[in-house]
């Protein structure tokens, strides 16, 4: 019997982001998703500042959640002073993200 090829090039437990940047599909954790009303957005940035996974994408005139990672916690909606973000049930959306 022979030892199979080792999976790590290291002698000890080293984690190397260059080897692989691990990433979870946290977008699937959501039961609700933030929906931004661009008209109401005053670009105050609070949603992006407080978003725990920091997944608010900076658009030219508003902020947009990265739904690949957004866990649907709702902090952005809660912190938005203008009520520009609404948490909508995931079930309302089809696979392409369009409201069904």
């Amino acid at each position: 019997m022979a030892i199979k090829k080792f999976s790590s090039k290291y002698e000890a437990a080293w984690s190397d982001a260059n080897q692989q940047l691990l990433c979870l599909d946290t977008g699937t954790w959501r039961t609700k998703r933030p929906v931004v009303n661009v008209e109401k957005c005053t670009y105050c940035g609070l949603c992006a500042i407080y978003c725990p996974p920091q997944c608010m994408k900076i658009m030219p005139d508003h902020f947009e959640p990265d739904l690949n990672f957004c866990k649907g916690c709702g902090v952005c909606a809660k912190e938005c002073l203008r009520g520009a973000i609404t948490m909508m049930p995931e079930g309302d959306f089809d696979n392409e993200g369009k409201k069904g």
């Binding site: 080792f6 999976s7 437990a13």
Partner: peptide, 16 residues
Amino acid sequence: PIGAGSHGLMTEFMEL
């Protein structure tokens, strides 16, 4: 960017 003392999971642990 490299971390010391990461998780060794299952066969990776045994490998180490």
